[in-house]
Design a protein around this nucleic acid. Structure first.
Lengths: 149, 149
DNA sequence: TATTGTTATACTCTATAACTATA
DNA sequence: TATAGTTATAGAGTATAACAATA
C-alpha cells in the first residue's frame, strides 16, 4: 500500500489552509494601516528595500523590486523629488548611479512602521497572556516559512 | 508616576513589530504562488468575495471590494466573459443586477487555493512536530487579530 | 426626484522599444 | 560592441463626471 508514501506531500492540508487564510487576512489589515498618502505602494517598497539593503544602482533596485528599469526611473525620481533618497554617481563607472536613503527617508519608514505597530499593539492588548505567548513562539516560525531556502 | 498608565498603549512593541514583518513576508510569498495568468488580482478578489458572500448587486460588490461602481462594471464584465460569474436581473427591482459564481468560477477558486495550500504544505513539512503544533495554536489567534471588532 | 448601472474620458502605473552616454 | 540609464510610446486598471433606465 502506497498511502504512507503519499502522506509527506499532503501533510496537514487543513493547517496549511487555515494558516494561509489567517496570514492573508491579517496582512490585508496591516496594509490598510499605511496612511501615507504621499507615496505609492511601489515607492514605499523601493524605499524599504533600499533601507534594508543599502545603496543600490538603478538596475539593482529594479531587479530587487521585480520591475523593469524604466519603471524604476520614475519611482526613484519621485523618491528623489521628495528628498527621501539621494542619487550619487558610481565611483568608478560613470554610467551607473547609486541610490541611498536620506535621513528623511529613514524617518518616514520609521514613522510608517510605528503606525502599523501601534495598530497591532492595540490588537494584541485584547489577547490573554497565553495567546500572546503563542504568537511570540509562532512569529519566528512564520518568518522561516517565508524566507528559508 | 504615570508610567504604569502608559504601558497598556505600548504593550509589547517588539512582538508587534516582529509579528507584522513575519506576516507581511509570508503573505507576500503566498501571493506569489498564485499563477493564474488569466485573471488580474482585482478579478480574483471580486470572485472570492462573491463566492464567500453569495449573490451581490454591482454596487454591493463594488462596496465590498472598495472600488467605484464603474470599475466593478469592467471587473464583472471580464469575469462574465470568462464564464466565471452569472448576471441575473433582480427579482423585484429591474434596475439592479445580481452576480453569482458559476460552477466553473468555484472550480477555479478551489484550484487556486489548492495550489497555494500545496506550496505551504511543502513548507510545513520542514518543521518539527512542536513547531507545527505552535502554528496550529497561533492560526486562530491571528485570525481573530484580523477579523475581530 | 432619487437610485442603479453604464458610458465617456482622464490619470496613474507599468512595460517594450528606441536612444544617449559611457565602458 | 556591450552595458547603464533615460526617453517615447502604448497598454492595463482605476477614478470622476455625465448619462440612461427604473423606482
Amino acid at each position: 500500500m502506497s498511502y504512507a508514501n503519499d502522506v509527506p506531500t499532503t501533510l496537514d492540508p487543513a493547517l496549511a489552509s487555515a494558516l494561509r487564510m489567517s496570514v492573508m487576512r491579517l496582512g490585508r489589515r496591516l496594509r490598510q494601516q499605511r496612511t501615507d498618502d504621499r507615496l505609492t505602494p511601489s515607492q514605499i517598497a523601493a524605499l524599504t528595500t533600499l533601507d534594508r539593503h543599502g545603496a543600490l544602482t538603478l538596475a539593482g533596485l529594479a531587479a530587487a523590486e521585480h520591475v523593469q528599469p524604466p519603471s524604476m526611473v520614475r519611482i526613484s525620481a519621485a523618491l528623489e523629488d521628495l528628498g527621501l533618497v539621494t542619487r550619487t554617481p558610481h565611483p568608478t563607472d560613470r554610467r551607473q548611479v547609486l541610490f541611498a536613503v536620506t535621513p528623511a527617508g529613514a524617518r518616514l519608514l520609521t514613522e510608517d512602521r510605528k503606525r502599523r505597530d501601534a495598530w497591532l499593539c492595540q490588537r494584541l492588548k485584547g489577547l490573554t497572556p497565553e495567546e500572546t505567548e503563542a504568537l511570540r513562539i509562532a512569529a519566528p516560525i512564520l518568518d522561516r516559512l517565508a524566507t528559508e531556502r
